[in-house]
Amino acid sequence: MVWQLLLVAAIGAVAYIDRTAAFQLMLHRPLVVATAMGAVFGNAFAGAQVGAVLELLYLVRLPVGASTPPDDTGAAMFGGAAAAVASSSIGLDAGSFSAVLLLSVPCAETGKAVDRLVRRVNGRIAALTIESVERGDSQAVEHGLLAGVALFAISGTVLALSFSGLGLAAGKLLLPCFGPASKARFAVMLPLFPLIGAASVFSCTRTDRTAPAFYLTMWTVFAATLFFRWAG
């Protein structure tokens, strides 16, 4: 239990620092984060399943300039944890899978709001840094920067603990409400989410030549794999 808490906190700090403050080595991507969360709570495969869908969903929103995209890292923390506890020995059922994806949206929006707040507080840090430099202290730059990174790390840890906690709670409640035994219809929506993800990729890579490339591949792969499924 304690080691799980520590691991989640560490994943949170690393992922959120990587997201904005430093490195940007893509350790914050939903596929990575959701798999890690799934692994911490006992089912890396279920986490990866959710992570792969979340990975593409928000790509259409680019982190350009001062505009902040929805926090897909946070959504993946929620989704990975929820998927791991909601999955049974045969994996994650379609109804719970859909519900996990849909319920992760508030996390993405909350994470975005927190990100903006952190950047506002950084404004104070930057102002203080400039004041100190004007007084002749060149080391203030180093202190200011580290304060900013620390702020991203702390907020990331807090977000990771809250989102994964919410994910665990949701995961425990999901199976009875949305799982195979329930009357819920969320299961029929499941095929839709990868398509939204694909549309997101298609939208952010749009040029004159990408539309035929996208639709032709979709048709070819669809026909080919269907043929092999029937044949095999």
Binding site: T20, A21, A22, Q24, A66, R119, R120, N122, G123, I125, A126, A127, T129, I130, G144, L145, L146, A147, G148, V149, F152
Partner: peptide, 8 residues
């Protein structure tokens, strides 16, 4: 981007 802020 360690201390990314809206002003600077």
């Amino acid at each position: 981007q360690g201390c990314w802020n809206y002003e600077g």
